Every structure is written in structure tokens, then in C-alpha cells.
Amino acid sequence: NQESVVAAVLIPINTALTVGMMTTRVVSPTGIPAEDIPRLISMQVNQVVPMGTTLMPDMVKGYAP
């Protein structure tokens, strides 16, 4: 099972992602793959992401799977 990126904290809208904001977990449905965390650093979320929420591609500005 592939791990997906999950919010480790509440991430406010338009916040640039940092390593500490993200964790990984096997979830269903799957979100952004864990191995993409290095690509996500400094990208901004386009909505509020509650802690424990799986990051989906459409939540991150400029992210393309």
C-alpha cells in the first residue's frame, strides 16, 4: 500500500508547505504520494487543510501529478 501525504497540523489557506506540516499515512482514497514531499515544500495550499486531512493534488497550487 502506498503512503499518501497527510496534514500533520492545521494548514491555513495560502500557506507555503514545510516538512513539519506534512506526515504520511496509508489512506483511502490515496492522495499525493509520500515521495512527492520534496516537491511540495514551498508550494501553497489553496484551501484550509485540517489536521489529518489527506492532501489531494487539487489542494496544492501548481502541483501536477
Rank of each mutant, 00 (worst) to 15 (best):
N1T: 15
N1I: 13
N1E: 11
N1L: 15
Q2C: 02
Q2F: 08
Q2E: 07
Q2P: 10
E3C: 04
E3D: 11
S4L: 02
S4P: 00
S4I: 02
S4T: 05
S4G: 04
S4E: 00
V5Q: 00
V5M: 02
V5P: 01
V5Y: 01
V6S: 08
A7S: 11
A7N: 01
A8W: 10
A8K: 10
V9Q: 15
V9R: 08
V9C: 03
V9H: 11
L10F: 12
L10C: 04
I11T: 00
I11S: 00
P12D: 05
P12G: 10
P12A: 14
I13R: 08
I13P: 14
I13Y: 06
N14M: 10
N14H: 15
N14G: 09
T15R: 07
A16V: 08
A16G: 07
A16H: 15
L17S: 00
L17C: 01
L17Y: 01
T18L: 11
T18F: 07
V19S: 13
G20A: 13
G20L: 13
M21L: 06
M21G: 02
M21F: 05
T23E: 07
T23S: 11
T23K: 13
T23Y: 13
T24A: 11
T24K: 15
T24Y: 08
R25T: 06
R25C: 04
R25P: 01
R25E: 08
R25D: 11
R25W: 04
V26M: 15
V27F: 02
P29M: 04
P29R: 12
P29C: 03
T30N: 14
T30H: 08
T30G: 10
G31K: 02
G31N: 01
G31H: 02
G31P: 00
I32R: 00
I32T: 02
I32N: 02
I32C: 03
P33R: 09
P33G: 07
P33K: 14
P33L: 05
P33E: 04
P33V: 06
A34E: 05
A34D: 05
A34V: 07
A34I: 07
A34G: 09
E35I: 14
D36N: 12
D36S: 09
P38Y: 06
P38H: 15
R39F: 11
R39I: 08
R39S: 09
R39C: 03
I41E: 09
S42W: 11
S42L: 11
M43I: 05
M43R: 10
M43Y: 10
Q44G: 06
Q44Y: 11
Q47E: 15
Q47N: 08
Q47Y: 14
Q47F: 04
Q47V: 14
Q47D: 08
Q47W: 04
Q47L: 12
Q47C: 03
V48C: 03
V48H: 13
V48R: 06
V48M: 12
V48N: 12
V49K: 01
V49D: 01
P50Q: 08
P50C: 04
M51Y: 11
M51A: 11
M51V: 12
G52N: 15
G52S: 04
G52M: 03
G52E: 14
G52H: 09
T53D: 06
T53L: 09
T53K: 07
T53W: 07
T53E: 10
T54G: 02
M56R: 10
M56Y: 08
M56L: 07
M56H: 12
M56E: 08
P57G: 08
P57N: 07
P57S: 11
D58H: 13
D58F: 09
M59I: 03
M59H: 10
M59R: 02
M59F: 11
M59W: 04
V60T: 02
V60A: 01
V60N: 01
K61F: 14
K61E: 15
K61Q: 10
G62K: 09
G62D: 13
Y63A: 05
Y63W: 13
A64D: 13
P65I: 10
P65F: 04
